[in-house]
Design a binder for these strands. Sequence first.
DNA 1: TGCTTAAGTAAACGGCGGTTTACTTATCTG
DNA 2: CAGATAAGTAAACCGCCGTTTACTTAAGCA
Lengths: 188, 188
Amino acid sequence: MSVRDEDKMRDAERTKAEILAAAQQVFSTRGYADAKVRDITAIAGVNPALVSRYFGGKLKLFAAALDAALDARLITDLDRNLFGETIVARFTEPRGDRVNPLPIMLSGSSDSEAREVARGLLRDRVFEPLEAWFGGEAASVKAARFMIVSTGFFAYRDQLPLDAFAGAVDPDLRQWLVSEFQAIVDNE
Amino acid sequence: MSVRDEDKMRDAERTKAEILAAAQQVFSTRGYADAKVRDITAIAGVNPALVSRYFGGKLKLFAAALDAALDARLITDLDRNLFGETIVARFTEPRGDRVNPLPIMLSGSSDSEAREVARGLLRDRVFEPLEAWFGGEAASVKAARFMIVSTGFFAYRDQLPLDAFAGAVDPDLRQWLVSEFQAIVDNE
DNA sequence: TGCTTAAGTAAACGGCGGTTTACTTATCTG
DNA sequence: CAGATAAGTAAACCGCCGTTTACTTAAGCA
């Protein structure tokens, strides 16, 4: 389980990073309320006290985990002609060790403090940049459409897993997702 | 606040119903983990002990609240020609005192026990009936599309409210939702 | 009206879990 | 190799909150 069983060198930065990675994993799968600090630190192989020491508490760790998962390139990198395909690829193939922020966001939705954190970051780091990237009069509705479809997808893949979403994404469903996202930029 | 300040007659059935209604309200807005039993009973104007007495505990109350919100007519009533319009109307105009089950479901997603309850009811009472109603080979994908769009919508209306979803639904967004749902039954 | 039973309450209990405190151990520097 | 300091730990702490217990009060019934 522990990441550092045979690796006891002391490195605060690395330890913080390991806690953060474990937090992203646990928050996104078990949800904020059900994710115990002890669960997270067990995966990172460190003492629970370090969460308070390094992050200032569970809520701040949640904020940090969410912030770290939010990658501006998610939006700035996009090619409008390949929007649908690119987004779906990023959603379904977890590039390296980078984790999707949306499951973490959703995981915080059932605790009011965590929800406020998630709302703020969601607005500032995802919705508004997306709105700006879409541009034009319908930008807000486009951003809303994007949020609805992507969030609904993650809700049933990670939060309330339904059989239909288990394993690899059904090719027909995947195709629908691609066209759905592409339609947003194509003004349809 | 209390529903029964000047109404102290004793009626177990009615009391149970009031607790249930309060539970639906609180769970759907604050989330399972953040909804305290004392919050719910304060709204119903009764003692916290009654939750354990009448429902067997918080988790069972959650299950009951969800079950009560699930109305089979949500699906069986549907007219295929007006599917999109009907569904959106039901989502946006909370018919009488009936509450939407999806926000309650989502609210349980960050506690593993509540999540299992929500998953089971979601599958048996929503997904599978919907799948059967759609019929045909693509039924599963259609049901998935329905779940994705409706859940995404509620996520940002009730769970992580974004400004774009505040107040009345934007007419353009509403129109998109209607066509989106209609497209599912129209095999598009 | 008194007796029984159900409805409801007040207050205490207990454990889960985030956090704090006091301590131990490794690393770095002269 | 000290000595200092940062990294990490073990264990206790304590508040929150779901639940239980013991009690009070209202309704039904002869």
